[in-house]
């Protein structure tokens, strides 16, 4: 599996993503600078976490229009798998590859902690290694993570089964108490229509090694390798 990580000015999880990808694929991903127009052939493109362009204007707004994104959008529309983590999710939303917006957390605080997520479906390239309804532990680290979409969009997302992960308690219960940031419907991650683009605020790559106190995130990357080999 060939993967690429897009590096924006202000990305700070690009190397974490590269470590997790190399552990799963056996080879390092191509690190592609945002100003490049060329993107090597890739089975998976990762938009990493961080604070691209200092979160100026709106988180992800500038990065969504950087030169490399034209190519990323083209590949995504052609079916290449794209994974946006944290700031990467914000970029995907601003680029309109995913619906909705990530707004300021309801608490107005930057939140950095491990959270529980419920895996909503397992028949996608990203979640094949998980069990349906499985509760996993990923890390969040964001100030603009409150997922907002209008009622009509939410209805469509729910109806089409496009919610990938929801914030939940350790038992898998969804509710306001398990919602760290005010996201509508406790949404932590969503798919595009074809389920080839996934954006999520929590960081799978931060809990992808026993030394990092958890390995739930690693299954996303090994699952991707397996789905692409199948």
């Amino acid at each position: 599996m060939k993967s690429a990580v897009i590096v924006f000015p202000g990305s700070n999880c690009d190397r974490d993503a590269a470590v997790a990808l190399e552990a799963a694929t056996g080879r390092p991903p191509a690190m592609v600078w945002h100003g490049d127009a060329e993107l090597p052939a890739s089975d998976l493109i990762v938009l990493p976490g961080g604070f691209s362009y200092g979160d100026y204007l709106r988180s992800g707004a500038m990065a969504a229009h950087s030169p490399i994104m034209r190519e990323v959008i083209k590949r995504a529309n052609a079916g290449t798998l794209v994974l946006g983590i944290c700031n990467g999710f914000q970029v995907l939303a601003e680029a309109r590859l995913l619906p909705g917006v990530l707004m300021r957390n309801a608490s107005l605080r930057f939140i950095c902690k491990d959270v529980h997520l419920r895996v909503e479906r397992t028949d996608t390239s990203f979640t094949g290694r998980y069990k349906k309804g499985e509760v996993v532990k990923f890390a969040i680290a964001h100030k603009d993570g409150s997922y907002f979409a209008d009622n009509e969009t939410l209805k469509r997302l729910e109806g089409e089964g496009r919610v990938a992960f929801r914030y939940c308690d350790p038992q898998g219960q969804i509710g306001a108490e398990a919602n760290p940031n005010g996201s509508r419907h406790n949404i932590a991650g969503i798919y595009n229509e074809a389920r080839t683009v996934l954006g999520l605020m929590p960081h799978p790559e931060r809990l992808a090694d026993p030394a990092l106190s958890g390995t739930d995130g690693a299954k996303m990357f090994t699952g991707l390798v397996e789905s692409l080999a199948a």
Binding site: R58, A61, H65, E94, M103, F148, A149
Partner: peptide
């Protein structure tokens, strides 16, 4: 439309 405002919100 293209940058300054996010017309979703």
């Amino acid at each position: 439309k293209e940058l300054l405002a996010n017309t979703i919100i």
